[in-house]
Each structure stands twice: as structure tokens, then as C-alpha cells.
Design a binder for these strands. Structure first.
Length: 223
DNA sequence: ACCCAGGTGGCCC
DNA sequence: GGGCCACATGGG
């Protein structure tokens, strides 16, 4: 059992996810910030508010009053700090890259990551999500699900973000589409199959472990 | 009335 | 380096 095998099992059972659900690169970035510790359903409402008012571009977020931005993104939760974070990003984009995402994304991957991490409100997962899903460069996104699921599967013992990211990148071919799909599948597993609450440890996880080991994969009739 | 969600930064030691 | 805390809405 290795990380590539787990990917194939997930893909077979959940199907292709085709992430990130967004129409533009900038929408990916906004979504990545808004989804911090929030359910995607709530983020969708916030994005819809921005879209309906034609605020879903760097220029308009740059110009909008913070109080109005807060109002529009309210459903996503932590709306005051997230409004600041969106502002922080576009301020950074205008100050250093003429407000041009193409200029930012033309940076070499590691330097791009460093630049994104310098923005207050963009941490490792958000930065990697932007690099992978908006800039289309191969970087593996690690989230809370990744840590919990793969620790419990016994496939990793680390808890440090960078270490886990390195394990995935080392174990898999460097492939943007693979990285995109794998992270999406992990989230799908985390959201819909195993709630991963402590009391859920037995039922959900042992079931999936068996599943992952091929012990019991005859009960899927889909696809 | 709890618990949680596709995290992050600030502060403390 | 790690442990704790605030940040806030909507759904189960």
C-alpha cells in the first residue's frame, strides 16, 4: 500500500473531481482565502455575492470599500479578517506585480510560494492551493484531512506540513493534474465518507482501511 | 445546545 | 519548535 495506490482507489471509487470549482484564476484565489476554516457551501454564497455585483476581479477588490467587502463575503465566516486578507492580496499584487496575475504566476514556483507566503493571511495551504489550482504549477496541497487520514491509515507519521508535502511529492510523479485530483479526492473522502471524529474512528476508518486494502471492494456498483 | 468546516497569525514559553 | 487562542457564519 503506497500513496499512488491510495490515489487509484480513491479515483476509482469517487470518480474525477475536476477541481478547482471556479471560472477564473482570481476566483480560485478568492475562494482559497474564503474557504479557510469554512464550509464550501458558505464560500459559494460569498462568491455569488461578489460575482453578482461584478466585484470578482483584482481591480474591483482593490477599489472596494472594506466595509462593503465585509458585507458581501459575510456568509463565509470570519468575514472581517478575510476581507482584510483579500485586500492584503490585491494590495500586494498591485504593489509588486502591476495588478497582473500573469506577471505573478510567471515567477519560478519556489519564489512564487515565498511571495505568496509573505502576504498576511496566506498560509501554506492557501499558497499551495493558489500555486496548484490557479498558477497550474505542481505543488502538493496538504490540509487537515490529509494529515488525519494518512496518519490513521499508518502511511505517514509526520505532522509537519512541509514534511507531509515532501512525502507526497517524493512518492508521486510531478504532475499538476495528478496533484489537483489527489487533493480533491482527499477532501471528498474527508467530507463524505469519514467524519473523522474520535468516536467515528472505529466504524468509518476501519471500513475504509479494509476498502483501501481491497478486502471489501465488491459493494460498489456505481460507474 | 452543542460540534464542525477545504486555516492563519499573534502571543507565549 | 510547539501549544493555545481569536476569528464568525450556517448546517447537522
Amino acid at each position: 500500500m503506497n500513496l499512488k495506490t491510495v490515489y487509484e482507489i480513491l479515483l476509482k471509487n469517487f470518480g474525477k473531481q475536476n477541481w478547482w470549482p471556479a471560472e477564473t484564476e482570481f476566483e480560485v484565489i478568492v475562494g482559497a482565502i474564503l474557504t479557510q476554516q469554512a464550509s464550501w457551501k458558505n464560500v459559494e454564497k460569498a462568491i455569488k455575492n461578489l460575482k453578482e455585483n461584478n466585484f470578482l476581479e483584482p481591480q474591483t477588490i482593490y477599489s472596494i470599500k472594506i466595509s462593503q467587502l465585509e458585507k458581501l463575503i459575510k456568509p463565509s465566516g470570519f468575514y472581517r479578517i478575510k476581507a482584510k486578507r483579500l485586500k492584503n492580496f490585491v494590495n500586494f499584487l498591485y504593489k509588486k506585480y502591476d495588478g497582473d496575475l500573469n506577471k505573478l504566476f510567471s515567477l519560478e514556483k519556489d519564489f512564487l510560494r515565498k511571495e505568496l507566503l509573505s502576504v498576511n493571511g496566506i498560509g501554506k495551504e492557501t499558497a499551495d492551493s493558489i500555486i496548484l489550482y490557479a498558477a497550474n504549477k505542481p505543488t502538493f496541497v496538504v490540509d487537515a484531512y490529509t494529515k488525519r487520514i494518512f496518519n490513521r491509515l499508518g502511511l505517514i507519521k509526520e505532522n509537519d506540513y512541509e514534511k507531509i508535502k515532501n512525502i507526497f511529492e517524493y512518492s508521486l510523479p510531478e504532475d499538476v493534474e495528478l496533484y489537483k485530483e489527489y487533493h480533491a479526492l482527499i477532501v471528498e473522502l474527508g467530507k463524505n465518507i469519514c467524519k473523522l471524529k474520535p468516536k467515528c474512528k472505529e466504524c468509518c476508518l476501519s471500513k475504509w482501511c479494509n476498502y483501501a486494502n481491497g478486502v471489501n471492494n465488491s459493494d460498489k456498483r456505481e460507474s
